[in-house]
Design a protein around this nucleic acid. Structure first.
Lengths: 120, 120
DNA sequence: AACAACATTAGAGCATACTCTATAGTTGAT
DNA sequence: ATCAACTATAGAGTATGCTCTAATGTTGTT
Protein backbone atom coordinates (compact mmCIF):
# COMPACT_ATOMS: atom_id res chain seq x y z
CA UNK A 1 0.00 0.00 0.00
CA UNK A 2 1.06 3.60 -0.51
CA UNK A 3 1.51 6.20 2.19
CA UNK A 4 -2.02 7.60 1.97
CA UNK A 5 -3.63 4.23 2.62
CA UNK A 6 -1.19 3.59 5.46
CA UNK A 7 -2.12 6.95 6.94
CA UNK A 8 -5.84 6.19 6.73
CA UNK A 9 -5.43 2.72 8.24
CA UNK A 10 -3.39 3.96 11.20
CA UNK A 11 -4.76 7.45 11.75
CA UNK A 12 -1.23 8.83 11.59
CA UNK A 13 -0.63 11.70 9.16
CA UNK A 14 1.55 11.17 6.09
CA UNK A 15 3.85 13.89 7.43
CA UNK A 16 4.35 12.03 10.68
CA UNK A 17 4.77 8.70 8.88
CA UNK A 18 7.54 10.25 6.78
CA UNK A 19 9.06 11.68 9.94
CA UNK A 20 9.07 8.19 11.49
CA UNK A 21 10.61 6.77 8.32
CA UNK A 22 13.36 9.40 8.39
CA UNK A 23 13.87 8.56 12.06
CA UNK A 24 14.42 4.92 11.13
CA UNK A 25 11.35 3.48 12.86
CA UNK A 26 9.67 2.16 9.74
CA UNK A 27 10.74 1.39 6.20
CA UNK A 28 8.89 1.37 2.90
CA UNK A 29 10.12 -0.37 -0.21
CA UNK A 30 10.44 1.14 -3.66
CA UNK A 31 9.39 -1.02 -6.61
CA UNK A 32 12.48 -1.10 -8.82
CA UNK A 33 10.49 -2.52 -11.75
CA UNK A 34 8.51 0.73 -11.91
CA UNK A 35 10.75 3.41 -13.36
CA UNK A 36 8.23 6.22 -13.75
CA UNK A 37 8.03 6.97 -10.04
CA UNK A 38 9.77 6.38 -6.74
CA UNK A 39 6.72 5.73 -4.59
CA UNK A 40 7.23 3.84 -1.36
CA UNK A 41 5.19 0.73 -0.62
CA UNK A 42 4.30 -0.36 2.89
CA UNK A 43 3.23 -3.75 4.23
CA UNK A 44 1.09 -5.00 7.12
CA UNK A 45 4.10 -5.12 9.41
CA UNK A 46 4.42 -1.34 9.02
CA UNK A 47 0.86 -0.99 10.34
CA UNK A 48 1.82 -3.12 13.34
CA UNK A 49 4.90 -0.98 13.89
CA UNK A 50 2.96 2.29 13.68
CA UNK A 51 0.40 1.01 16.17
CA UNK A 52 3.23 0.02 18.45
CA UNK A 53 4.83 3.44 18.05
CA UNK A 54 1.60 5.14 19.18
CA UNK A 55 1.35 2.93 22.26
CA UNK A 56 5.02 3.32 23.08
CA UNK A 57 4.81 7.11 22.81
CA UNK A 58 1.88 7.09 25.25
CA UNK A 59 3.95 5.45 27.94
CA UNK A 60 6.67 8.04 27.46
CA UNK A 61 9.23 6.20 25.36
CA UNK A 62 11.26 8.49 23.10
CA UNK A 63 11.65 7.95 19.36
CA UNK A 64 15.12 6.62 20.03
CA UNK A 65 13.91 4.11 22.59
CA UNK A 66 11.06 3.03 20.33
CA UNK A 67 13.61 2.50 17.58
CA UNK A 68 15.62 0.24 19.87
CA UNK A 69 12.56 -1.84 20.74
CA UNK A 70 11.48 -2.16 17.12
CA UNK A 71 14.99 -3.23 16.20
CA UNK A 72 14.96 -5.75 19.03
CA UNK A 73 11.85 -7.22 17.51
CA UNK A 74 12.12 -6.86 13.76
CA UNK A 75 15.77 -6.46 13.06
CA UNK A 76 17.88 -9.40 12.05
CA UNK A 77 21.21 -7.83 12.95
CA UNK A 78 20.93 -8.47 16.69
CA UNK A 79 21.59 -11.74 18.50
CA UNK A 80 18.93 -13.25 20.76
CA UNK A 81 21.00 -12.17 23.73
CA UNK A 82 21.17 -8.54 22.55
CA UNK A 83 17.44 -8.48 21.83
CA UNK A 84 16.69 -9.79 25.28
CA UNK A 85 18.94 -7.23 26.88
CA UNK A 86 17.20 -4.35 25.13
CA UNK A 87 13.73 -5.66 26.00
CA UNK A 88 14.69 -6.33 29.63
CA UNK A 89 16.07 -2.82 29.93
CA UNK A 90 12.78 -1.37 28.70
CA UNK A 91 10.80 -3.64 31.01
CA UNK A 92 12.82 -2.32 33.93
CA UNK A 93 12.13 1.25 32.89
CA UNK A 94 8.40 0.41 32.76
CA UNK A 95 8.60 -0.93 36.31
CA UNK A 96 10.28 2.31 37.33
CA UNK A 97 7.57 4.40 35.66
CA UNK A 98 4.93 2.29 37.40
CA UNK A 99 6.56 2.91 40.77
CA UNK A 100 6.72 6.65 40.15
CA UNK A 101 3.08 6.75 39.12
CA UNK A 102 2.02 4.87 42.25
CA UNK A 103 3.97 7.35 44.37
CA UNK A 104 2.41 10.29 42.56
CA UNK A 105 -1.01 8.76 43.14
CA UNK A 106 -0.30 8.64 46.88
CA UNK A 107 0.85 12.25 46.76
CA UNK A 108 -2.31 13.43 44.99
CA UNK A 109 -4.50 11.47 47.40
CA UNK A 110 -2.63 13.22 50.23
CA UNK A 111 -3.34 16.56 48.55
CA UNK A 112 -7.03 15.64 48.43
CA UNK A 113 -6.89 14.77 52.12
CA UNK A 114 -5.29 18.14 52.84
CA UNK A 115 -7.96 19.97 50.85
CA UNK A 116 -10.68 18.07 52.74
CA UNK A 117 -9.18 18.94 56.11
CA UNK A 118 -8.45 22.56 55.20
CA UNK A 119 -4.73 22.09 55.52
CA UNK A 120 -4.08 24.30 52.54
CA UNK B 1 16.90 31.90 51.04
CA UNK B 2 18.18 33.20 47.73
CA UNK B 3 18.08 31.35 44.42
CA UNK B 4 21.56 29.82 44.74
CA UNK B 5 20.75 28.16 48.03
CA UNK B 6 17.43 26.96 46.66
CA UNK B 7 19.26 25.51 43.68
CA UNK B 8 21.75 23.68 45.89
CA UNK B 9 19.03 22.32 48.17
CA UNK B 10 16.94 20.96 45.32
CA UNK B 11 19.55 20.08 42.71
CA UNK B 12 17.67 22.17 40.18
CA UNK B 13 19.69 24.80 38.30
CA UNK B 14 19.03 28.50 38.87
CA UNK B 15 18.15 28.76 35.17
CA UNK B 16 15.49 26.10 35.48
CA UNK B 17 14.19 27.58 38.73
CA UNK B 18 13.77 30.94 36.99
CA UNK B 19 12.08 29.15 34.11
CA UNK B 20 9.63 27.56 36.56
CA UNK B 21 9.04 30.92 38.18
CA UNK B 22 8.28 32.52 34.82
CA UNK B 23 5.98 29.59 34.10
CA UNK B 24 4.07 30.36 37.30
CA UNK B 25 4.92 27.17 39.19
CA UNK B 26 6.77 28.84 42.03
CA UNK B 27 7.01 32.34 43.43
CA UNK B 28 9.74 34.18 45.27
CA UNK B 29 9.18 37.32 47.32
CA UNK B 30 11.15 40.53 47.07
CA UNK B 31 11.98 42.33 50.30
CA UNK B 32 10.55 45.83 49.88
CA UNK B 33 12.51 47.14 52.86
CA UNK B 34 15.73 46.52 50.94
CA UNK B 35 16.04 49.13 48.24
CA UNK B 36 19.55 48.42 47.01
CA UNK B 37 18.61 45.19 45.23
CA UNK B 38 15.64 43.25 43.91
CA UNK B 39 16.71 39.78 44.98
CA UNK B 40 14.03 37.16 45.29
CA UNK B 41 13.63 35.21 48.52
CA UNK B 42 12.30 31.66 48.63
CA UNK B 43 10.79 29.70 51.51
CA UNK B 44 10.57 26.02 52.47
CA UNK B 45 7.31 25.61 50.58
CA UNK B 46 9.19 26.41 47.38
CA UNK B 47 11.51 23.49 48.08
CA UNK B 48 8.45 21.26 48.50
CA UNK B 49 7.05 22.58 45.26
CA UNK B 50 10.27 22.00 43.32
CA UNK B 51 10.50 18.45 44.64
CA UNK B 52 6.94 17.90 43.57
CA UNK B 53 7.68 19.36 40.14
CA UNK B 54 10.53 16.87 39.63
CA UNK B 55 8.32 13.94 40.59
CA UNK B 56 5.43 15.17 38.49
CA UNK B 57 7.66 15.63 35.46
CA UNK B 58 8.87 12.03 35.85
CA UNK B 59 5.36 10.67 35.50
CA UNK B 60 4.83 12.71 32.35
CA UNK B 61 2.81 15.67 33.58
CA UNK B 62 3.38 18.83 31.56
CA UNK B 63 4.35 22.18 33.10
CA UNK B 64 0.76 23.31 32.61
CA UNK B 65 -0.66 20.26 34.39
CA UNK B 66 1.85 20.62 37.20
CA UNK B 67 0.77 24.24 37.53
CA UNK B 68 -2.84 23.15 37.89
CA UNK B 69 -1.98 20.63 40.61
CA UNK B 70 0.16 23.12 42.52
CA UNK B 71 -2.67 25.65 42.32
CA UNK B 72 -5.11 23.01 43.53
CA UNK B 73 -2.93 22.55 46.54
CA UNK B 74 -1.39 25.93 47.39
CA UNK B 75 -3.64 28.46 45.79
CA UNK B 76 -6.35 30.18 47.78
CA UNK B 77 -8.40 31.24 44.79
CA UNK B 78 -10.06 27.87 44.20
CA UNK B 79 -12.97 26.38 46.10
CA UNK B 80 -12.67 22.95 47.71
CA UNK B 81 -14.89 21.59 44.95
CA UNK B 82 -12.66 22.99 42.20
CA UNK B 83 -9.52 21.68 43.89
CA UNK B 84 -11.04 18.22 44.18
CA UNK B 85 -12.06 18.24 40.54
CA UNK B 86 -8.53 19.08 39.37
CA UNK B 87 -6.97 16.44 41.61
CA UNK B 88 -9.52 13.78 40.59
CA UNK B 89 -8.86 14.54 36.94
CA UNK B 90 -5.13 14.01 37.43
CA UNK B 91 -5.75 10.82 39.41
CA UNK B 92 -7.79 9.49 36.50
CA UNK B 93 -4.99 10.32 34.08
CA UNK B 94 -2.57 8.43 36.36
CA UNK B 95 -4.87 5.38 36.24
CA UNK B 96 -4.85 5.66 32.45
CA UNK B 97 -1.05 5.85 32.36
CA UNK B 98 -0.89 2.79 34.60
CA UNK B 99 -3.15 0.86 32.26
CA UNK B 100 -1.05 1.81 29.25
CA UNK B 101 2.15 0.76 31.00
CA UNK B 102 0.64 -2.61 31.94
CA UNK B 103 -0.33 -3.15 28.30
CA UNK B 104 3.12 -2.15 27.07
CA UNK B 105 4.63 -4.54 29.57
CA UNK B 106 2.55 -7.36 28.14
CA UNK B 107 3.60 -6.36 24.65
CA UNK B 108 7.30 -6.38 25.52
CA UNK B 109 6.95 -9.75 27.27
CA UNK B 110 5.31 -11.04 24.08
CA UNK B 111 8.26 -9.68 22.09
CA UNK B 112 10.60 -11.57 24.41
CA UNK B 113 8.55 -14.72 23.87
CA UNK B 114 8.81 -14.20 20.11
CA UNK B 115 12.57 -13.76 20.33
CA UNK B 116 12.85 -16.92 22.40
CA UNK B 117 10.82 -18.96 19.94
CA UNK B 118 12.53 -17.49 16.86
CA UNK B 119 9.35 -15.86 15.63
CA UNK B 120 11.24 -12.79 14.50
C1' DA C 1 39.04 49.91 46.74
C1' DA C 2 39.23 45.48 44.57
C1' DC C 3 37.32 41.27 43.41
C1' DA C 4 34.98 36.86 43.50
C1' DA C 5 30.60 35.30 43.86
C1' DC C 6 26.41 36.29 43.80
C1' DA C 7 21.89 38.69 41.82
C1' DT C 8 18.72 40.49 37.85
C1' DT C 9 16.53 40.73 32.99
C1' DA C 10 16.17 39.86 28.18
C1' DG C 11 16.73 37.15 24.79
C1' DA C 12 19.23 33.52 22.01
C1' DG C 13 20.02 28.60 21.34
C1' DC C 14 19.02 23.61 21.71
C1' DA C 15 16.70 18.94 21.62
C1' DT C 16 12.60 16.49 20.76
C1' DA C 17 8.76 15.51 18.12
C1' DC C 18 6.24 16.85 15.18
C1' DT C 19 3.63 19.89 11.48
C1' DC C 20 3.43 22.52 7.52
C1' DT C 21 4.85 24.75 3.07
C1' DA C 22 6.84 24.85 -1.32
C1' DT C 23 8.12 22.76 -5.37
C1' DA C 24 7.84 19.42 -8.68
C1' DG C 25 6.58 15.17 -10.68
C1' DT C 26 2.88 10.92 -11.30
C1' DT C 27 -1.44 8.54 -11.58
C1' DG C 28 -5.99 7.59 -12.87
C1' DA C 29 -10.64 8.88 -14.12
C1' DT C 30 -13.36 11.63 -17.43
C1' DA D 1 -5.73 16.22 -22.88
C1' DT D 2 -7.10 17.78 -18.53
C1' DC D 3 -7.36 17.84 -13.74
C1' DA D 4 -7.98 16.31 -9.07
C1' DA D 5 -5.58 13.65 -6.09
C1' DC D 6 -1.90 11.60 -5.23
C1' DT D 7 3.54 11.10 -4.75
C1' DA D 8 8.49 12.78 -3.30
C1' DT D 9 12.10 15.90 -1.22
C1' DA D 10 13.89 19.73 1.21
C1' DG D 11 13.50 22.71 4.37
C1' DA D 12 10.89 26.08 7.36
C1' DG D 13 7.99 26.66 11.39
C1' DT D 14 5.87 25.30 16.01
C1' DA D 15 5.40 23.82 20.91
C1' DT D 16 7.55 22.24 24.97
C1' DG D 17 11.00 22.39 28.26
C1' DC D 18 14.82 23.64 29.19
C1' DT D 19 19.84 25.75 28.91
C1' DC D 20 22.96 29.27 28.05
C1' DT D 21 24.85 33.99 27.10
C1' DA D 22 25.24 38.78 27.66
C1' DA D 23 24.87 42.83 30.03
C1' DT D 24 24.60 44.94 34.25
C1' DG D 25 24.21 45.58 39.09
C1' DT D 26 25.01 43.95 44.40
C1' DT D 27 27.18 41.77 48.29
C1' DG D 28 30.68 40.45 51.31
C1' DT D 29 35.46 39.48 52.27
C1' DT D 30 40.17 40.95 52.08
Amino acid sequence: MLINELSKKTGISTHTIRFYEKSGLIEGKQDVSVKSNNYFHYDEVTIEKLEFISDAKSVGFTIKEIGQIIDAWYNKKYTKKQKNEILDEKLISLEQKMKEIKEMKKQLLQFKEDVLKDRC
